[in-house]
């Protein structure tokens, strides 16, 4: 039996009096790549925030268990330290916080948790340079403030860099592919593939099948009106591209799991 990393059952979530998630079920297994697709406003980002523990969302019903623990009892930082990573759809700009300083802090504190040695700034810079080059992030970005004034694509690359440094058990990547040029898209895909090889689970929220051709998901889930309404394989993405959400959602189950 494959290990379930994240298990979401009958999740109902409200924000500011509005119901956004409405009985969502989703299980993520170890080392799997799951894609979630769905129309704008269907609640994909909400799901990612709730998994990460955003305080402004109220879970009114349902459970989320992570490696057997009740995730809903854990604070945002506890979840992060337990190995959950959220790549933001819209990364937050934090003025005055130097990126390289920030990256070293998160890398070393993660190392400490994992029982690994912290590295000095020289060693870290070497490592950072390697990853930077891999991800196509320019050096001058490193001396700037966290996300401040970055282009959409630059922000997404920086999210990937943080993911790699944080070595999460599961990463939820909310539209990691939006705003990326073709080269960057391939780089992101190969970064995701590397994570998979290390049996990390990845949940990819995306609107386009493009990324999914470079890194083929194990499952594709379609989300609509706050729940997962269909689960299938790569075919589903193709169908969506051809027919649009409305038809695919209403169509009788084909290739579903």
């Amino acid at each position: 039996m494959t290990n379930i990393v994240l298990d979401i059952q009958n999740l109902h979530v409200m924000r500011d009096g509005k119901k956004i998630l409405d009985g969502l079920n989703l299980s993520i297994t170890e080392g799997s790549l799951d894609a979630i697709m769905g129309p704008n406003g269907s609640g994909k980002s909400t799901l990612s925030y709730v998994i990460a523990g955003h305080p402004n969302y109220q879970v009114t019903q349902g459970t989320i268990s992570y490696l057997g623990q009740n995730l809903l009892n854990m604070s945002v930082d506890e979840r992060a330290r337990a190995g959950i990573f959220l790549g933001f759809q819209y990364p937050i700009e934090i003025p005055g916080v130097s990126i390289s300083h920030f990256l070293r802090l998160i890398y070393n504190s993660r190392s400490r948790q994992l029982g690994e040695k912290e590295v000095d700034s020289f060693t870290f810079l070497k490592k950072l340079k390697e990853l930077r080059l891999q991800l196509g992030i320019s050096e001058d970005m490193m001396s700037r403030s966290l996300n401040a004034g970055f282009s959409g694509g630059e922000k997404k690359k920086l999210e990937m860099l943080q993911m790699v440094l944080l070595r999460p058990t599961i990463a939820i990547l909310d539209e990691a592919d939006s705003g990326l040029d073709i080269d960057a898209l391939k780089i992101v895909a190969s970064t995701i593939n590397q994570q998979r090889q290390q049996s990390k689970s990845i949940v990819l929220i995306t609107h386009y099948k493009r990324l999914l051709t470079y890194t083929v998901p194990d499952k594709i889930h379609i989300m609509s009106k706050g729940k997962i309404v269909k689960t299938g394989n790569q075919d589903l993405a193709l169908q969506l591209e051809e027919k649009g959400y409305d038809k695919v959602i209403k169509a009788p189950i084909a290739g579903s799991v």
């Binding site: 930082d77 992060a80 933001f88 937050i92 934090i94 005055g96 916080v97 998160i106 948790q113």
Partner: peptide, 24 residues
């Protein structure tokens, strides 16, 4: 939320934001 989602405690996150605010 962003900083805490990277593993910083509430206090540390606030300290970082504060230091960033003064950085100018």
């Amino acid at each position: 939320f962003y900083l805490m989602s990277r593993g910083f405690s509430h206090e540390m996150a606030a300290t970082l934001i504060t230091a960033g605010f003064l950085e100018e």
